[in-house]
Amino acid sequence: MFNPNAKQINLFKLVLFIAALGPLARLVLFGFADKLGANPIEFITRNTGDWTLYFLCLTLSVTPLRRISGWNWLIKLRRMLGLFAFFYATLHFTTFLWFDHFFDIDEMLKDVVKRPFITVGFTAFVLLIPLAVTSTNAMVRRLGGKRWQLLHRLVYVIASLGILHFWWMKAGKNDFAEPILFGTIVAVLLLSRVYWSVLKPKMQKRQTSPAPT
């Protein structure tokens, strides 16, 4: 089985880091080349929102991939994926706060309270903050593995809220193809966890227990 050494892992991390900055680099380049279209702010908002969702999906796919492939080293890339989800979410939120509201926090909060579509997106963003803050090794030690894991299960809630936010946004276009696609991906990623943690142990138990005589 493929099992990279520490040096190779570091190389993967470097490549991943550079690749994950690609979408931001593209936005900056497009900005300078005047290629963001007639409504650049909408373009940036959509694009950073999309990439938040992609990185959330990538982060959530690490565990299932490990289970299927046996590549346990993949776990070493997960923190970076998660932090990039937070990074693009922060850009997404900042675009909204800056260009939609010009840092008028009062107006922004009014929008958050009044509009479920924004409430949900904002909640997902706020919930990401403690996960980003506690992503360091030191924080894992301080919290203790169990408690850290419990806290980081929030990502299931965050991903679901993210999908709902995307769904409501697309509802305006009456076009659900993409929300359905990403909803399905997230559902499969979450359900695979249910399978491994609940159903599989049960089935194994059934198989290994001796037949009644």
């Binding site: 409504n39 702010i41 009044k114 509009r115 479920p116 509802a171």
Partner: peptide
């Protein structure tokens, strides 16, 4: 009269409002 999902109080004029001016 707001749209259920967003305010109709302001608008962004394409090509003019955005990075440096409010809606």
């Amino acid at each position: 009269v707001d749209h259920p999902r967003w305010s109709q109080a302001t608008e962004r004029r394409i090509g003019e409002d955005g990075f440096f001016s409010r809606k």
